[in-house]
């Protein structure tokens, strides 16, 4: 499922808002971290995810469900010294 379709399918009742990398995003209620990552096209990529300042290990992406107002960070490696 693409991010766009995930957003579009989120009707008033089953939608929630999260803060993703500092920006407000609509998401299906109770979406898992894995579903979010998949919707962003980042499944299988070298990324790390933090929810409300706590690391969510890759092994738990399937099990952790996001809730309204969660602050989510998705990071990756870039050039630096």
């Amino acid at each position: 499922m693409t991010y766009a379709s995930l957003s579009a399918s989120a009707s008033r009742e089953d939608a929630m808002q999260i803060l993703l990398n500092g920006e407000t995003r609509a998401l299906e209620s109770n979406a898992t971290v894995a579903e979010l990552v998949e919707s962003l096209g980042l499944a299988g990529r070298r990324i790390a995810v933090e929810v409300n300042e706590e690391i969510v290990p890759k092994s738990e992406h399937d099990g952790i469900r996001l809730t309204e107002g969660d602050r989510v960070e998705v990071v990756h490696a870039i050039g630096g010294g």
Binding site: L20, N21, L40, G41, R45, V75, H76, I78, G79
Partner: peptide
């Protein structure tokens, strides 16, 4: 080799 950690650009091409 050193590198930095930054927010993933969510508009990026996969």
């Amino acid at each position: 080799v050193t590198f930095a950690v930054r927010r993933t650009n969510l508009g990026q091409d996969a």
